[in-house]
Simulated scan of single mutants.
Amino acid sequence: MNRTFRFKNFTTREDPETLPEYSAICHSTDPQDVEGEAEEALCLDSSGGFATAEEADNWMRQHMRKTGHRHFRRSFEDYAELLPTDELEPARVARVTA
């Protein structure tokens, strides 16, 4: 008995029911004096999530004005949705004989 299995192809798109999120983390170093020895530590202050890149940029500018820090890691996150296409693709199976 032969069977043919078919798989659907899917495309990826940004989920229209959710908003993307923009954020920034300060990666500047501050000199610290620990027990008489100079060390550098990352600031790592985080902006939290914003709805636009402009808001994250504004947070970075404000943080720079307060601290003088100029090095940041910016992030963009969104949600994806997989949608089936109308095309069906036949399964490809390699038979194993022992």
Rank of each mutant, 00 (worst) to 15 (best):
F50S: 00
E89I: 06
N9L: 11
A56Q: 01
E21A: 06
Q32H: 13
E77F: 04
I25C: 14
R73E: 15
I25A: 14
E14Y: 02
E81H: 03
A91C: 06
P20E: 05
T67W: 02
C43F: 10
R73L: 15
H27E: 15
P16V: 01
R13K: 06
Q32W: 07
F50A: 01
H71I: 02
D78Q: 11
H63M: 05
T97D: 10
E17I: 02
H63F: 03
V93E: 08
G49T: 00
G36F: 00
M60Q: 12
A56Y: 01
Y22A: 00
R61T: 08
R95K: 00
E55Y: 00
C26Y: 03
S28H: 14
A98Y: 04
R13Q: 12
F5P: 03
C26R: 10
M60R: 15
C43Y: 05
E21R: 07
D86L: 07
D86C: 04
F7T: 10
T4I: 12
T18C: 09
E37I: 12
L42T: 07
C26P: 11
E35A: 14
A41P: 02
L42F: 15
E40M: 13
A38Y: 06
S47T: 00
G68L: 09
V96P: 01
L88M: 11
Y79V: 03
H63E: 12
T29W: 08
R70E: 13
R74G: 03
P90N: 02
A80P: 07
T29F: 13
A80R: 09
D33S: 14
E77S: 11
G68E: 09
E87D: 10
T29Y: 13
D86E: 09
D57G: 13
F76G: 02
V93Q: 02
P31G: 05
L82E: 10
D15W: 01
Q32G: 10
F7H: 11
E81L: 11
E37W: 02
D45I: 03
L88T: 07
A38W: 08
M1F: 04
